[in-house]
Amino acid sequence: MRVVVADDAVLIRSGLVRLLEEFDFEVLAAVGDGEALVKAIATHRPDVSIVDVRMPPSFTDEGLRAAVEARSQVPGSPVMILSQYVEVSYADDLLADARGAVGYLLKDRVADVEEFLDGLRRVASGGTVFDPQVVAQLMVRRRRDDPLASLTPREREVLGLMAEGKSNPAIGRELVVTDGAVEKHVRSIFNKLGLHADDGDQHRRVLAVLTYLRS
Rank of each mutant, 00 (worst) to 15 (best):
M1P: 13
V4F: 05
A6E: 09
D7T: 04
D7S: 08
D7R: 05
D8I: 11
A9G: 11
A9M: 11
I12D: 08
S14Q: 15
S14W: 13
S14Y: 14
G15Y: 04
L16T: 02
L16V: 02
V17N: 12
R18S: 15
R18P: 03
R18M: 15
F25Y: 13
E26L: 10
V27S: 07
L28H: 04
L28S: 08
L28F: 06
A29K: 12
A29W: 11
A30I: 06
A30Q: 03
A36N: 01
V38N: 03
V38P: 15
K39H: 14
A40Q: 03
T43E: 10
H44N: 09
R45N: 10
R45W: 11
V48N: 02
V51F: 09
V51G: 04
V53N: 01
R54Y: 00
P56A: 11
P57H: 15
S58T: 13
S58M: 12
S58F: 11
F59L: 08
F59A: 03
T60F: 10
E62A: 14
G63E: 05
R65T: 08
A66I: 06
R71F: 02
S72T: 15
G76K: 13
P78Q: 00
M80P: 08
M80E: 04
M80K: 09
Q84D: 11
Y85E: 13
E87A: 07
E87M: 08
E87R: 04
S89R: 12
S89T: 14
Y90V: 01
A91I: 06
L94S: 02
L94P: 00
A96V: 02
A96T: 03
D97C: 08
D97Q: 08
D97L: 05
D97I: 09
G103R: 06
L106E: 00
K107L: 02
R109Q: 07
D112E: 15
V113K: 03
E115P: 01
F116V: 05
L117N: 01
L117R: 00
R122C: 06
V123D: 01
A124Q: 07
S125P: 07
G126R: 05
G127D: 12
G127N: 12
V135W: 00
V135K: 06
A136C: 07
A136G: 12
M139K: 10
R144A: 11
D145T: 13
D145F: 14
D146K: 06
P147E: 01
P147N: 03
P147M: 00
L148I: 04
R154L: 06
E155N: 02
E155S: 00
E157R: 13
L161G: 02
L161P: 00
M162K: 12
A163K: 01
E164Q: 09
G165E: 00
G165V: 00
S167L: 06
S167I: 04
N168Q: 08
I171R: 04
I171F: 13
I171T: 07
E174M: 06
E174W: 05
L175E: 07
V177F: 13
V177P: 01
D179A: 12
A181M: 10
K184N: 03
K184F: 15
K184T: 10
H185Y: 15
V186R: 01
R187N: 04
R187C: 01
I189Q: 02
F190D: 05
F190E: 02
G194P: 05
G194Y: 03
L195V: 07
H196E: 14
A197V: 09
D198L: 12
D199W: 14
A208K: 09
T211M: 09
Y212I: 12
L213R: 07
L213V: 05
S215K: 06
